[in-house]
């Protein structure tokens, strides 16, 4: 099959960027989407051109590295799947596909389809931990966890942090991500000591990183490759309201100083180049 691609090309975070059109004439329908891009890149390299930069690692939908919009849908048309799990048989011969990176002020584009998602890491750093007794190891089954709680915690823990929820949200909110992280720890007995502070710390961090707010439109749930449910946001809101009205806000140390990721620091340290 023959596929035409309109791909976002951007040299670095400062480059304004533009779409560039590529033809991939010999696409096998059994190729994964990323394998099709590998073919394109090989073609570009053999022509002496710059290959298209995109993130990928496991290529089986469990690492959360890949992701961009295909024709306006995060991770493309296949539901409950990442871009790497999407195969070319989901498209038709002669399709024109527009590939666009996640767009949010908290996700600066580093190059082409690669964005810096370290803001999500900082949300986890702000409150995604539990107190644990160090030293002599406790018996593993000492703390009993009811099966429904374990199931819900496991379901929320399926979040791979790919950022599709942010990308598909008209407000660029990280509510589904943050809600999943809070629900994953909050459903377990081990997560209770920090539960109130965690809701404030992680939502404040998301706010400080420049993510928007949740308006419950449900696009995030629809495109989430890990099947995270919208109810994690409701749970996060409940924990947050309880914690704030309970007066926990002043006890939480918010991580307002936001060190940019190594990749972004490189560009911020370098003075802007003058256009010739």
């Amino acid at each position: 099959m023959r596929i035409t691609l309109d791909i976002w090309r951007q040299k670095n975070p400062r480059d304004p960027g533009r779409f560039e059109r590529f033809e991939v004439p010999n696409v096998n329908e059994h190729m994964s989407f990323l394998e099709m891009l590998d073919v394109l890149n090989q073609q570009l390299v053999s022509e002496g051109k710059e290959p298209v930069a995109f993130d990928s690692d496991c290529r089986e939908g469990i690492c959360g590295m890949c992701g961009f919009l295909i024709n306006g849908e995060a991770h493309g048309p296949l539901r409950n799947a990442t871009v790497c799990q999407t195969h070319m048989r989901h498209f038709k011969d002669g399709d024109v596909l527009r590939l666009e990176p996640w767009r949010a002020s908290a996700f600066p584009v580093l190059r082409d389809l690669i964005v810096d998602r370290s803001a999500l890491d900082r949300i986890i750093a702000a409150g995604g931990y539990t107190s644990t007794r160090a030293g002599s190891a406790a018996e593993a089954n000492q703390i009993l966890i009811p099966k429904p709680s374990a199931d819900k915690a496991m379901e929320a823990a399926a979040c791979i942090g790919c950022g599709a929820c942010v990308a598909s949200c008209p407000n660029a909110a990280a509510a589904l991500f943050t809600g999943a992280k809070i629900a994953h720890l909050g459903h377990l007995p081990q997560g209770q000591p920090e539960r109130m502070g965690r809701a404030i710390a992680m939502t404040s961090q998301a706010h400080a990183e420049g993510f928007g707010h949740c308006t419950t439109i449900g696009e995030c749930e629809a495109v989430c490759p890990a099947g995270i449910k919208l109810e994690v946001i409701s749970r996060m809101n409940k924990d947050f309201i309880k914690a704030t009205l309970g007066g926990y806000a002043n006890e939480v140390q918010t991580l307002a100083a936001l060190p940019p990721s190594a990749a972004m620091r490189f560009f911020e340290a370098e003075p802007p180049k003058k256009e010739p």
Binding site: D116, R117, S118, D121, R122, I124, A125, A126, A173, I200, T203, S204, A206, H207, G212, H213, C214, M236, N237, F240, I241, T244, L245, G247, A249, N250, V252, Q253, T254, L255, A256, A257, L258, P259, P260, S261, A262, A263, R265
Partner: peptide, 25 residues
């Protein structure tokens, strides 16, 4: 990817003020 963070003490707010200052609130 940098995950190092330095705690900063936020200005104190009333409970209602803390609600207003956050998107969730």
């Amino acid at each position: 990817m940098s995950t190092s963070v330095s705690p900063v003490s936020a200005p104190r707010a009333t409970r209602l003020g803390a609600l207003w200052n956050s998107a969730v609130g």
